[in-house]
Each structure stands twice: as structure tokens, then as C-alpha cells.
């Protein structure tokens, strides 16, 4: 069985993330890039399945600029068997339609029994790429699952939406997107880091993805028109509780009509 995990290289959420005001695109020089934590959890889910069944092959796939090889290396050192990197200057600033079509073309070529993605990336927050890939490939999608198991030729999971919690399942091949409800990722071991150097990484340009890509391109795209930074917020100096801070806070809330309106 082959599992392909969609990992994404994103600006570190621990730092201030900067948009280029002219293009509305991420300013790459402004912050460090890391593997999006949710996609490390997606990899963790694949590696957990592999821990139980050594015949499972785990492939890490990413689309991103040349420095995103760093994301693949991290995945290999955590335990993925091989990597695929989609890299092309023409993909800079790709919108969701292009991203999904490109990833789908690579997945079509690579062939997977199970594709595991994060539910939502921290830079884009669209949370739609997995469903879009499913539509391209004609696959069932179990999105936003917080539990995942393979049972025979089906994948099963628990899915919580805003309104219900459901048990969901689909026949393989399928795509799954996982939430933070899944376990935290493992750390690469020393052995893993050393072994990663010997693992194969394939690099594909857009030309390499033809003809798989040809049928799936959309003529429509989303463009950023304007981008404006909002002023930051400055707090007031905090008071130190000397035994009456709760009462002072009550006064503050009532004066601002944020509490006790039922009285007025």
C-alpha cells in the first residue's frame, strides 16, 4: 500500500508574517519557513499506519519554491520513504485552482491508495485543497477527521463539523484531511536524519506533469486586488492585584456597559 502525504512549507506562525503590499503575496524573506504543523500530523498519521504494517510505503509530496526541499528533508528524517517536489517558477503565487490541479496531476502520475493532507494550512486557511483534489481525481474525500483507521479496503474516521459529529468511511483509494485532534508529530531521530540523505527525492516541473495536467487546468483564477496592513494594537499597562482587582474590573466593565446592562 502506498500512502502519499501532502506536506506544505509555510511561514513560521511563531513569527510575524508579512505580505508584500504590492502583490498581496507572502514576503518570503520576512520569515522562516517550516513544515506546517498540521501536515506533520498528517505524516505522523501515515507513519503510525506504517509502524503497524511495514509493507506500507510513505511518500511526502509538496508543491513550493526550491527551498521547500527543506520540507521534504524533514519528512524523510521523520520516516517517509521518499519525496516528490513540484517546483516551477510559473507556480509562484499560484491560487487554489492551480495548486489543486498541479497536486492532482502529480498524484495521478504517482498513484496512491491513500492520500493524507492537513485540514487547513496556516498561511492560506482555505481548507479546500483536499476536496478539490478529490474532485479532480474522482476520489471520495473524508475531510476534517480527528480519528483515522484502515479497515480492509476502507478508510474510516471521525469527523466533527460545526453541527454534528459523524463516523465516516470510504473505499480506497481515497483522500483524507486530518485535524489537530490527531496526535502530535514525532521528532526525527538521529538515525532518521542520517538515513534521510540516502532516500530518493523526485523533482518535477510543470512540463514534467503534462499530460496529466492538461485536462485539469482551470481558465478561472483568483487575483489579489489590494492589500493593506492594519495598525497593530497596544495594550494598557496591567495593574497588579492588591486584593481589589476583581472589584476594579467589575467597575471597568460596568462603566463601559460591557456588564450589568440588565440593571440599567
Amino acid at each position: 500500500m502506498r500512502i502519499i502525504v501532502l506536506i506544505k512549507h509555510v511561514p513560521d506562525t511563531w513569527e510575524e508574517r508579512v505580505l508584500d503590499p504590492d502583490t498581496g503575496r507572502l514576503d518570503r524573506s520576512a520569515s522562516e519557513r517550516v513544515v506546517d504543523e498540521i501536515t506533520e500530523r498528517a505524516l505522523e498519521a501515515a507513519l503510525t499506519l506504517k509502524d503497524r504494517d511495514k509493507s506500507i510505503e510513505v511518500v511526502a509530496l509538496t508543491m513550493g519554491p526550491s527551498e521547500s526541499t527543506g520540507a521534504i528533508k524533514k519528512a524523510l528524517s521523520m520516516g517517509a520513504d521518499s519525496g516528490i517536489h513540484l517546483v516551477d517558477d510559473a507556480l509562484a503565487g499560484a491560487d487554489a485552482m492551480t495548486t489543486a490541479a498541479t497536486l492532482a496531476a502529480a498524484l495521478r502520475d504517482a498513484g496512491a491508495d491513500l492520500i493524507i493532507a492537513g485540514n487547513e494550512s496556516t498561511d492560506g486557511r482555505g481548507g479546500m485543497i483536499p476536496a478539490m483534489i478529490a474532485e479532480h481525481l474522482g476520489l471520495p474525500a473524508l475531510t476534517f477527521v480527528s480519528e483515522l483507521a484502515i479497515e480492509g479496503d476502507r478508510v474510516r474516521g471521525e469527523r466533527a463539523t460545526e453541527t454534528a459529529t459523524s463516523v465516516v468511511s470510504a473505499p480506497l483509494p481515497a483522500i483524507v484531511s486530518i485535524t489537530e485532534g490527531m496526535p502530535e508529530p514525532r521528532f526525527p531521530s538521529f538515525k532518521g536524519i542520517m538515513g534521510a540523505k540516502k532516500k530518493p527525492v523526485a523533482s518535477h516541473s510543470l512540463a514534467d506533469l503534462e499530460p496529466a495536467l492538461a485536462g485539469s487546468r482551470s481558465s478561472a483564477s483568483s487575483v489579489v486586488l489590494t492589500c493593506e496592513q492594519r495598525p497593530g494594537r497596544t495594550g494598557a499597562d496591567p495593574i497588579v492585584d492588591e486584593g481589589d482587582a476583581g472589584t476594579q474590573l467589575a467597575t471597568f466593565l460596568i462603566e463601559r456597559r460591557l456588564a450589568g446592562q440588565r440593571l440599567v
Binding site: G127, M128, M132, A134, E135, T161, S222
Partner: peptide
């Protein structure tokens, strides 16, 4: 922009050849 409707929107954009603006 709910969990249910995001799946619908994503698939729909691919199926009808539209494009997405989200959230």
C-alpha cells in the same frame, strides 16, 4: 465558510471551472 460548505465549494469550483474566494 463552514466545514461542510468548504468541501462543497472546493469540489464545485473544480467541477464547473470557476475559481474561489474564501473566508
Amino acid at each position: 465558510h463552514s466545514i461542510e460548505s468548504r468541501d462543497v465549494a472546493g469540489r464545485l469550483a473544480v467541477r464547473v471551472g470557476g475559481a474561489l474566494a474564501w473566508d
